[in-house]
Structure formats: C-alpha cells, structure tokens
C-alpha cells in the first residue's frame, strides 16, 4: 500500500475522521500539561521574573509559524508534481493557521519585550524576518481568495509559495545583514547544549510537542472543511449542468 492512497479525498476523509478525535485529545492533553507545568511548577527567573514564562507560548508558536510555511511548501510541491488535490487543499488549510501562529509569536514577543528590552517593537533581525514572513502569509492567502477556479488557484498559489519561499529566505539573510539584533540567539539546539536551564527546558519541549499536535489537528480539521466545500461546489456545478 502506498502512502499516496491517502491523497485520495475519500480515503483521506475516512482516515482523518478516525484519527482526528485521538489527535485532538492528545493535543489538548499535551498542551494543558505543558502549560500547567510551565506556568505553575517552574520557579521565576532570577533576572526576568515571571515574564520568562511567556516562552511557553512564544517559542512554540514562532516555531510553528515557520513550520507551517515549510509544510505549505512541501504540500505545494506535491500538488505541482503529483497533482493530489488533498495536498493543495492542505496547503490552503495550513496558511491561516500558520499566520495565526506567526501573529501569536509576534504579539507574545512584544509583550515580553516591553518589560525586558523596554520597547514593544525593535527592528531586530528576528522580529523583522517574522514580520516579513507574516506579509508573505497575507499575500498567499489573498491570492487563494482572489481566484475563482479551484485548480487554477491551487496552481498559482503553489508557484507563489515556491518563489515566495526563496525570497522569504533571501529576506531573512538580507535582514540579518541589515541590522544586528537585540534578540538572544536560538535557545534550543542539538549541538553545543541548550542555553535554557533544564528547569524550563522540559516543559518547553512538552509545549512544543503540544503546539505541533495542535497544528496537525487544526490543519486536518480545516482540510476536511476545504474538501467538503470543494465537494459542494462540484455538486453545484453538476446540478447547473443538468439544468
């Protein structure tokens, strides 16, 4: 059995209907556990006080803001190469979720930045590249919304996602070149050990897992909605032709 069988809308609907309740439950459980642990069971930082705890929202949502774009890129490529409709709809479904995560990342960053750096916003490379990513999301969603024919919309947004990825990547490096930042370097890393003390690392990892599960849940849910919407328009088109 090939993995591409799940690209058939019917198969996808059946499988996702079965998976969805479980993954929703798992996402809720992981998030609740991670956030509770993070907010109530870890000590305040000696320098940052309780504000440090916003990392349990900030870091995972920022990661998923980028992760969602990569998922859309992969889904767009699958659509362009293999023309699986579910893939195109999954990319469409992921965009608003990714946008929201990016926005949460920006807003929580601002809330944390005000007491820590003394400013809501700084033109720091990380912040700036996130803002630019947010703009790319807006353009992508606007293009989906503007084109009537579903297949053409899928085609064009996929091309935009591909080319946009290159420019988003380029912008990131251009922005780093443009300014040196306030933002601390990456906090979690595989190489060279973590720079987050262990007290915070464990609940943070749990929160990241929770956000990933939340992302998968939302994308599955929204993809199912998109498939249903698509089915309705197919039925309507058929009815119009019969009339």
């Amino acid at each position: 059995m090939s993995i591409w069988e799940y690209a058939n809308p019917k198969k996808f609907m059946q499988t996702s209907a079965w998976v969805l309740p479980w993954i929703t439950g798992l996402a809720v459980a992981t998030l609740l556990a991670g956030l509770f642990w993070g907010f109530f069971l870890t000590p305040d930082d000696y320098k940052q006080g309780s504000t440090v705890k916003i990392i349990y929202l900030h870091v995972p949502s920022a990661m998923m803001g980028i992760g969602a774009w990569f998922m859309m890129l992969a889904a767009s490529l699958i659509w362009l190469i293999r023309r699986h409709h579910v893939s195109a709809l999954a990319a469409k479904a992921a965009a608003p979720v990714g946008t929201t995560f990016t926005l949460i990342g920006l807003v929580t960053g601002a809330i944390w930045g005000e007491p820590m750096w003394g400013t809501w916003w700084a033109w720091d490379p990380r912040l700036t590249s996130f803002l630019i990513l947010f703009l790319f999301y807006l353009g992508y969603m606007a293009l989906w919304g503007a084109i009537e024919d579903a297949d053409t919309a899928a085609d064009l947004t996929s091309v935009l996602c591909l080319v946009g990825s290159v420019f988003a990547f380029l912008s990131r490096y251009a922005v780093y070149f443009w300014t040196q930042g306030l933002h601390q370097a990456q906090s979690l890393g595989v190489v060279g050990g973590d720079r987050v003390s262990n007290v915070y690392a464990a609940p943070l990892l749990l929160c990241i897992a929770g956000f990933i599960l939340l992302f998968v849940t939302l994308v599955l849910l929204r993809t199912r909605t998109e498939i249903r919407a698509r089915r309705i328009s197919a039925l309507l088109a058929r009815e119009r032709r019969a009339a």
């Binding site: 935009l160 420019f167 380029l170």
Partner: peptide
C-alpha cells in the same frame, strides 16, 4: 494576477514582500 479584476492591489501585496532583499 493577470486574470483578476482589481488584480493591481493584490499584486502589490504579493510583490512588495519580495522587494525586501533588493530594497535592503
């Protein structure tokens, strides 16, 4: 955006983020 009505506004939204590296 060639086939779209009011494509101009949408086009700005798509194109301007891509101008960032050149601008910088």
């Amino acid at each position: 955006t060639v086939g779209l009505k009011r494509g101009g506004l949408l086009m700005s939204l798509l194109v301007l983020p891509m101008y960032v590296p050149t601008l910088i």
